[in-house]
Design a protein around this nucleic acid. Structure first.
Lengths: 217, 217
DNA sequence: GATTGTGAATTATTTCACAGCT
DNA sequence: AGCTGTGAAATAATTCACAATC
């Protein structure tokens, strides 16, 4: 098996995303090269971890010098699927939807929110930037027509399964789910859950149990 | 070492949070008891995983019957530190801040956002629910006075490190960080990063590399 | 008969250590 | 001299299998 075709684990992929951000920042600062040590520091991991991660898809570094930033950035973009834009629909035009729609990092990375759906008659027809909020009843037809590839689900938990199913029927192949609900979808549809309450609970757990010892993280 | 005092891993804690949500839903549906099988199905894991997780802090199930919901719910709340309210400050009153402030699951779980800070003079003084937005310049003093325990950082990346440091100096012991920046803080301050761009990139990675094979997740 | 609790086996991930380039 | 690439070792997480219990 050629080294650069080995399976990349979930956690490695997440770190690649962090490396990419760090490398872009370094490039901005005028650096041409970055060591695994420097990357590790910026991303909060260890140097061997960085080298292992980067070596899973080929050898890019120059020994004695470090990693040349521009080619590594473009390789990471390729691997992460960022070398072409994605057509994204936002389902749910509430507060979370609004925050996501305005989130600069999305468009910078090529995630183009070209459709917005909601079922609130008071919101349908409203314009957000370039996009007009459409009736969620038309989701399936409209998402198919617009060739939406990724849907962001930002609706209440009760509505999430239904809208996700309709997105899937419209050909959507990946869903970023902010609803605190498990989505049950046909194989082939990738789901990534973001559970904000869980993130806070991880903190209250850490605070609650640190009476005994002084460790962080 | 007594079984219920073993270290609980990061990923187990995150699953506990999911079990809790699932159990609350089951209780709502009138169930008194839940099997590891049922919990696994609702949370998207396996039955042995559920049993392993739940057994790390004592034996709660009844063999042949499953887990009695009410005591398990209250035990999970205890472990996750949800049996008492937490004083939370929101730093950054932009769109993400606004979404988080209105997020029902936070208050339901006892995370009380009792201070809001921003540095935009146009926003300072504005009232959000019970809370008035305060000048971020007063963060340190005000957070200390209000005995804030957890801070939610929802400011641009450039400002994140500075506000986090001030929060830490004010006695804040945990930070939920939405800024795409690494926070470097004194040991003892727990940081949990939520990186929304990374979550989308995990999806574009999955879509990009699935040409070859039909696996999901 | 159903379902938990858990040691043992397996699999995955991280860390180490050092040979090999530049 | 400095820093990568990577097998090997160590650690962690998950899955299995089945005795124990209700």
């Amino acid at each position: 098996v050629p080294a650069h075709l080995r399976k990349i684990s979930e956690s490695t992929v997440r770190r690649l995303s962090l490396y990419l951000r760090a490398l872009e920042a370094l490039a901005e600062e005028g650096e041409r090269t970055a060591s695994s040590e420097e990357l590790a520091r910026r991303v909060g991991t260890t140097a061997p971890q960085v080298r292992k991660d980067l070596s899973t898809f080929g050898s890019f570094g120059k020994r004695g010098l470090g990693y040349p930033i521009p080619p590594l950035v473009s390789r990471l973009r390729d691997i992460l699927g960022l070398s072409r834009p994605w057509s994204v629909a936002l389902i749910g035009a509430g507060r979370i939807g609004s925050a996501l729609h305005a989130y600069p990092a999305f468009r910078e990375r090529g995630f183009r929110i070209i459709r917005i759906f909601d079922d609130d008659p008071g919101k349908i027809g409203e314009r957000w930037g370039e996009t007009v909020i459409q009736d969620a009843a038309d989701l399936e037809e409209e998402a198919r027509r617009a060739e939406i590839e990724i849907a962001i689900v930002a609706v209440p938990a009760e509505a999430a399964q239904a809208v996700a199913e309709r997105a899937a029927r419209a050909g959507v192949r990946a869903i970023l789910n902010f609803a605190p609900a498990r989505l049950d979808l046909p194989a082939g549809v990738v789901v990534n859950d973001v559970n904000l309450a869980m993130e806070l609970e991880a903190l209250s757990y850490a605070l609650g149990s640190d009476d005994s010892e002084g460790r962080a993280t």
